[in-house]
Amino acid sequence: MPKRILQGKVTSDKNDQTVTVLVERRFTHPVMKKTVRSTKKYRAHDPLNQFKVGDSVRISECAPISKTKRWEVVTEASA
């Protein structure tokens, strides 16, 4: 199965080698037919501590690194 790749914004970089990424998902509500925005936070591995708050990044699934980290930062997303 291919690894999922998501795009989002860094909301926290306080932890060592970890960033918190906010990913937004848009979908059409099945009954109301209105576009709904849903957000979710992921903790991603950033080994060089190079990404700061506000950066747009791409994250990819990986093997568990810690209790909460199952994603790693791949690259900085093009704006």
Rank of each mutant, 00 (worst) to 15 (best):
M1A: 12
M1H: 11
P2T: 12
P2H: 09
K3R: 15
R4H: 14
R4I: 03
R4D: 08
I5S: 10
I5E: 13
L6H: 07
L6Y: 05
Q7K: 14
G8M: 01
K9P: 00
T11C: 09
D13F: 13
D13N: 15
K14H: 13
K14C: 08
K14D: 12
D16L: 11
D16A: 10
Q17S: 08
Q17G: 03
V19A: 01
V19G: 04
V19H: 00
T20Y: 05
T20F: 08
T20C: 10
V21C: 04
V21S: 04
V21W: 02
V23S: 09
V23K: 04
V23P: 04
E24I: 00
R25G: 07
R26P: 02
F27N: 07
F27V: 03
T28F: 13
P30M: 05
P30T: 12
P30E: 05
V31R: 02
M32Y: 05
M32F: 13
M32G: 08
K33D: 11
K33L: 07
T35G: 04
T35C: 06
T35W: 02
T35S: 09
V36P: 01
R37H: 09
R37D: 06
R37S: 14
R37W: 00
S38P: 00
S38R: 15
K40G: 02
K40T: 01
K41W: 11
K41Q: 14
Y42A: 03
Y42H: 11
R43S: 13
A44E: 05
H45P: 04
D46M: 01
D46Q: 05
P47H: 13
L48Q: 13
L48A: 10
L48N: 15
Q50S: 13
Q50P: 00
F51R: 06
F51Y: 11
K52A: 12
V53H: 10
G54V: 00
G54E: 10
D55S: 13
S56A: 12
V57W: 00
R58C: 11
I59V: 03
I59W: 06
I59S: 01
I59T: 00
I59Y: 06
S60T: 11
C62D: 06
A63W: 09
S66P: 09
T68Q: 12
K69Q: 04
K69C: 06
K69Y: 01
R70W: 07
E72P: 04
E72W: 02
E72D: 09
E72Q: 14
E72A: 11
V73I: 14
V73C: 07
V74Q: 03
T75E: 10
T75W: 03
T75I: 13
T75H: 04
S78K: 14
S78M: 13
